[in-house]
Simulated assay, not measured.
Amino acid sequence: MNVEEIMTPNPERVYVTDTISDAITKLFEMDVRHLPVVNENDELLGMLSDRDLRSFSLPFSTGVDSSDAENQRSAAPVSDVMQGDVISVGTDAELSEVIALMIDHKVGAIPVVDSLEGGLVGIVSYIDVLRLAEDEFSF
């Protein structure tokens, strides 16, 4: 099975210049766990997960930072906390390859880029894989 068959097309994303506050808001509003980070040409630059943002915001919840410092930190660009060494696949990738990458690298989502132009076109998450498995195993 090809990744294009189960990916979520045109996924929510953040731009490398968006603020951490913007990304947190988008994650909660969209109820997603992963956001690809792109530039103005939709080229994939990294990934941002709810885990990245939880570790970033931990000092907020412990009361270590003052209000001004919290505002400064949340106004920082997502590039400060994103994972820059991101694994991605092309639209022609086999689903088995994507699952193997998720397991090997212990990631919950893999961005899908256009095989010819390189722009972000989709994302495959563990939820997409589980939905497929549910359909396959339902009797």
Rank of each mutant, 00 (worst) to 15 (best):
S88E: 07
F139L: 12
L35M: 06
A93H: 04
E12H: 14
N39E: 12
D80G: 03
D42S: 06
S21K: 05
Y15D: 08
G46P: 05
H105M: 01
E29Q: 15
I103G: 05
S88K: 15
M82W: 11
V37P: 01
E29T: 13
T17E: 11
E97T: 14
G46C: 08
L27H: 09
L45I: 07
P11E: 05
V98H: 04
L44N: 07
F60Q: 01
F139R: 14
E12F: 15
Y15M: 03
L53K: 02
E134M: 08
V121N: 03
N10L: 11
I20N: 07
E43W: 02
E136F: 12
D22F: 10
E40I: 03
A23F: 02
Y15T: 11
V112K: 09
V78Q: 08
V37Y: 03
A133D: 09
M47F: 01
Y15C: 02
F137W: 07
V98N: 11
S55H: 15
R73H: 08
L101W: 02
N10P: 02
G108F: 03
N41K: 13
V32D: 07
D50W: 08
D42I: 00
L35G: 08
D128W: 04
N39F: 08
R51L: 14
S61Y: 13
L130G: 01
V81I: 14
A133P: 01
G122Y: 06
L58R: 11
V124N: 02
P36G: 10
D68Y: 09
V89P: 07
Q83G: 14
T19D: 07
D68S: 14
V64E: 06
V113H: 00
D104V: 00
I123N: 01
S67Q: 13
F56W: 08
D50N: 13
S49G: 12
V64P: 00
I103Q: 11
T62G: 05
I123W: 04
P36K: 00
G90F: 04
A75K: 13
N2I: 10
I24F: 06
L53Q: 05
Y15Q: 04
D135N: 12
D18I: 04
R51A: 12
F28V: 14
L27Y: 11
G63W: 05
A69N: 07
N39A: 07
L101A: 10
S79M: 09
R13D: 00
